[in-house]
Amino acid sequence: MDFEKVLQVLSARAAQSNHPQEVLRAPEIKALYDHIKTLPSDERGAFGKRVNELKKSLEVVIEVRRQELDKVDLPPIDVTAPMDINAPQPDLLPSEQGTIHPLSAEIERISDIFNRMGFVTEESREIDDQFHMFESLNFPKGHPARDDYGTFMTEETDVNGNRLIAPAHTSTMQNRVLKKYHGNLEKGEAIAAIVPDRVFRNEDLDARHEHTFYQVEGVYVAKGVNVGNLIATLQEFLQEYYGKKLDVRVNPFYFPFTEPSFEFALSCPFCEGKNPDCKVCSGEGWIELLGCGMIHPNVLKAADIDPNKYTGFAFGCGIDRLVMMKYGIEDVRHFESGKLDFLEQF
């Protein structure tokens, strides 16, 4: 392992970064720690010591860069200064200098794939009520699973005195979608819709968790829909999205709004289980990606759909995670950071 080369690369990165501390979370550092597990036990101590020495050297470079940034003097802005209404309009930046945010671009890509599969795309809401967040999805009041979502609530209440919520999943739109397209069933057509939009959860922030992220909800209802249709739909979508053939599997799970419920996993599209150091699947060859299942009869009844006549499936997948896997992004917080050095890569 060439420690000097790693130190040289990371030192240069820290010396140019406006956030030098993040270099200590670089994938190169993680790779060094992961390598320790592969060494014989009598070599791990010495290797770990060299890794710690490398980090100490980086901390010196980081501190120097911090001091440089602290010395940058910005001219003060006089917010009380009068505005000259006759001043010329400033030139706007040309659109060629901007790029589409990676999440926006991938949402368009996801929607396009599902649209070609016969699904329509709907939008969610920034603020919603507890009925659509919980009751319509078979979470009765007092249900313990309500506590699992870490939901943000407002001081404002609805007409029933219940506090409004910032949606923790785009499943809040499921009842509305089922009611909006109920007429499709009477015409012998399926209800097929996806809802890719922003959601909010009270999460402890780290490289894999963010309080604001994006999720795509999928709903399909018709006569004779079964688990095989669910698996085939998700497999076809993921193969199209990642551009290669994938194996999939489902494991039993529990969600109040589906029965039966599953965790859906796909074969690693990057190492195919052949690389024990794979950063995506950790060498296991499988990635647990999303939750799904057959729509619970109570959820269908809440939308005035007869569960004895119609069946359907639903799924929910984190869009941020799909994009992170696709482009090898190591930290979910980059998406909401507004950092140009990250966004300019797309």
Results as ranks from 00 to 15, higher is better:
residue 122 E to H: 11
residue 84 D to P: 07
residue 251 N to D: 13
residue 286 W to H: 04
residue 214 Y to H: 15
residue 115 N to T: 14
residue 313 F to E: 00
residue 183 G to Y: 11
residue 139 F to K: 09
residue 65 R to H: 06
residue 313 F to L: 05
residue 216 V to D: 00
residue 164 L to I: 05
residue 274 K to R: 15
residue 195 V to D: 04
residue 13 R to H: 05
residue 114 F to R: 02
residue 69 L to A: 00
residue 296 H to A: 08
residue 63 E to G: 01
residue 51 V to E: 01
residue 59 E to Y: 00
residue 179 K to V: 10
residue 76 P to G: 01
residue 18 N to M: 02
residue 327 Y to W: 08
residue 29 I to F: 03
residue 51 V to K: 10
residue 192 A to T: 02
residue 310 Y to S: 02
residue 139 F to M: 00
residue 236 E to F: 05
residue 140 P to L: 11
residue 139 F to G: 01
residue 341 D to M: 03
residue 169 H to C: 07
residue 289 L to D: 04
residue 346 F to D: 07
residue 345 Q to S: 11
residue 65 R to L: 09
residue 246 L to Y: 10
residue 24 L to M: 11
residue 330 E to R: 13
residue 308 N to A: 10
residue 242 Y to W: 14
residue 87 A to N: 12
residue 339 K to R: 15
residue 326 K to C: 11
residue 147 D to A: 15
residue 340 L to Y: 08
residue 31 A to P: 07
residue 20 P to Q: 07
residue 157 T to G: 00
residue 292 C to Y: 01
residue 41 S to I: 14
residue 66 R to Y: 03
residue 60 V to N: 07
residue 259 E to D: 14
residue 191 I to K: 08
residue 281 C to P: 08
residue 133 M to D: 11
residue 4 E to D: 14
residue 22 E to H: 09
residue 286 W to T: 09
residue 216 V to I: 15
residue 13 R to L: 13
residue 255 F to Y: 13
residue 148 D to R: 02
residue 332 V to I: 15
residue 141 K to W: 06
residue 36 I to S: 09
residue 50 R to I: 09
residue 272 E to W: 11
residue 90 P to K: 13
residue 183 G to P: 06
residue 178 L to A: 08
residue 215 Q to E: 12
residue 260 P to C: 03
